[in-house]
Design a protein around this nucleic acid. Structure first.
Length: 318
DNA sequence: CACTTGACCTGTCCGC
DNA sequence: TGCGGACAGGTCAAGT
């Protein structure tokens, strides 16, 4: 579920925590999700200093001083959680860092140390103690650890030369950032009409049209603009597209201010839930009255996704 | 080419 | 209580 506001919230948290840290070691047991070779990890990640944390679409980019970057996609259930050591002066010998073996399994010395990082952390019960059984990658940062957790293993981590990032397929095809200052209503409309015979919700979810919108914010923006999600793009008036442009930007901006949406297990860089769903108007609100007209919100299926609408405010027109 | 559907995963929830 | 099945959704591949 991490969409643009959730990934941006994680980025903001990590950007205040990671730059200046050195990656001392990496543990993972997930070659499918983190497919880089041991040679590349040792050469370009272990020992690297973290320079910056950026975001493009729903992807996080952690820049390193080796000329490489970690590219991380949280997909649906991914979490990237930073846990600082409560008392860095109490550091125990880190034998694992000297062996060069980054594939320690739970129960060994390094994992016991990792467990102490979780103990006493002021995160809520949603986060619990780390590592947990969904932990896929652990980055040892000396006085802190960064955990990549992903219950469903849809997410991934890649180590790539920073200069090559623009050349990978995803970044070559992904659409513009909807919150960019130079992204205009006219740009938005011109991109939508590339898919004239698709339903508008499917087009909002298409990352090559606009970056960062997922199921939650598609539903919220369409409700705000009073547009039925199955409306074909060619049937949208210029005024409706203008309104939808404003709604998409407003909804994304408001969610970032609330720390994103936690539906199931999204948490920010410090393990905190997002509050936006408390303010959402339709997503997961089926049965509750529309705040404009009182009609109960219903859940339907559009573009293969669970979709929430007010059946009175969002009439299908053609 | 335009557009839609299924696969990838695993935990949770619902009905029997 | 246990069990089978539906469901959750970001993205890519395969299908229509």
């Amino acid at each position: 579920m991490p969409e643009l506001p959730e990934v941006e919230t994680v980025r903001r948290g990590l950007s205040g925590l990671l730059p200046g840290k050195k990656v001392l070691n990496v543990w993972h047991d997930w070659p499918r999700g983190f497919p880089n070779s041991d040679e590349d990890v040792r050469a370009f990640l272990i020992g690297a200093n973290i320079v910056e944390v950026k975001r493009r679409a729903k992807v996080l980019l952690i820049g390193l001083d080796t000329g490489y970057s970690l590219i991380i996609h949280l997909k649906m259930t991914g979490q990237l959680v930073y846990v600082g050591k409560p008392d860095s002066s109490a550091s125990s010998p880190r034998s694992s860092a000297k062996t060069g073996d980054r594939r320690q399994m739970p129960g060994d010395t390094a994992s016991q140390e990792v467990e102490r990082f979780g103990a006493g952390h002021p995160s809520d019960s949603l986060l619990g103690k780390l590592p947990d059984k969904s932990t896929r990658v652990v980055f040892d940062l000396g006085d802190a650890r960064l955990f990549f957790n992903d219950q469903r293993k849809f997410g991934w981590v890649r180590l790539l030369p920073t200069a090559e990032i623009p050349n990978i397929d995803f970044f070559k095809t992904v659409g513009p950032e909807p919150l960019a200052a130079d992204f205009t209503a006219n740009d938005f409309a011109q991109r939508l009409v590339r898919r004239p015979k698709s339903g508008i919700k499917a087009v909002l979810l298409d990352q090559t049209i606009i970056a960062g919108v997922g199921n939650i914010y598609a539903d919220e923006a369409l409700y705000a603009a009073k547009i039925h999600p199955a409306t074909l793009v060619k049937d949208l008036s210029k005024a409706k597209m203008q309104k939808l442009y404003e709604s998409v930007r407003q909804v994304l901006t408001a969610s970032i201010e609330k720390g994103g949406s936690t539906d199931r297990n999204y948490v920010d860089a410090e393990g905190r839930r997002g509050a936006y769903l408390d303010f959402a108007k339709v997503f997961r609100k089926q049965g509750q009255p529309c705040h404009r007209c009182g009609t109960p919100i219903v859940k339907i299926r559009v573009a293969g996704r669970g979709t929430h609408i007010c059946p009175h405010c969002q009439k299908l027109v053609s």
